[in-house]
Amino acid sequence: MNLVARRRRIARLTVAGQRLGYLLYLTAIALFFTGFATRFHNALVTATIACLVVGSLVLAPAIIFSYAVRAADRDDPLPE
């Protein structure tokens, strides 16, 4: 696999990771307000915390790698 294809693949994965991470954050917010409006059951609290933890584990590397891909494109532009 050449460098251009590898960089594009990583860029696609970072976009997917960011979407998934932000979607998990949004789900955690919705679960929190659902619990706030009703009662905070154990399952609801567990699901909220799980969404926050998994969202953080997915989103942080995706953001870092997206900055890395953009910096690599800026510093070392490759022909398409």
Rank of each mutant, 00 (worst) to 15 (best):
T34Q: 01
F33V: 09
R8I: 15
A60W: 06
L52A: 01
A68R: 11
F33L: 12
C51A: 15
R12F: 09
N42R: 08
L24G: 02
L20H: 10
L31P: 02
R9I: 15
L57I: 03
L57V: 10
P61R: 15
A28Y: 00
P61E: 11
T46C: 02
L26D: 09
C51L: 04
L57P: 04
R12M: 13
A68S: 14
F36C: 15
L26R: 06
I29N: 04
T27Y: 09
G55C: 05
F32S: 03
R19E: 01
L78P: 03
L78D: 03
L78H: 12
I64W: 15
V45A: 05
R19V: 12
T46V: 08
R19L: 13
M1A: 08
E80T: 08
R6T: 13
S56L: 13
L26P: 03
A72K: 05
L23R: 05
I64D: 07
G21P: 10
A43G: 14
Y25N: 00
R19K: 06
V15E: 09
V58H: 01
I29Q: 06
R6M: 15
L52F: 07
S66E: 14
D73R: 11
F36Q: 13
A62D: 02
R12N: 14
T27L: 15
A30I: 09
L26V: 01
N42A: 14
G55K: 03
A62Q: 07
A37V: 02
I10D: 06
T38H: 10
I49F: 04
A72H: 08
M1S: 09
V45Y: 00
P79D: 13
L57E: 06
V45Q: 07
L24N: 08
P77K: 00
A68E: 04
A16D: 11
V54C: 01
D76W: 13
A71W: 12
A5L: 10
A16C: 02
Y67A: 08
P77L: 10
L13H: 04
H41V: 09
A43H: 15
V53I: 14
N2R: 05
L13R: 01
A30Y: 00
C51R: 00
G21T: 11
H41T: 15
R39S: 12
R70L: 01
L57T: 10
A60N: 11
R39V: 08
L59I: 09
A72S: 13
G55M: 02
T38M: 06
P77F: 01
A11P: 06
G35D: 02
A28G: 08
F40Y: 15
A50V: 14
A43N: 07
G35L: 07
T48E: 00
S66L: 04
A72R: 08
R9E: 10
A43E: 11
T14C: 13
A43Q: 12
N2T: 11
C51V: 01
N42G: 09
A47K: 00
L31K: 07
M1G: 14
L78N: 10
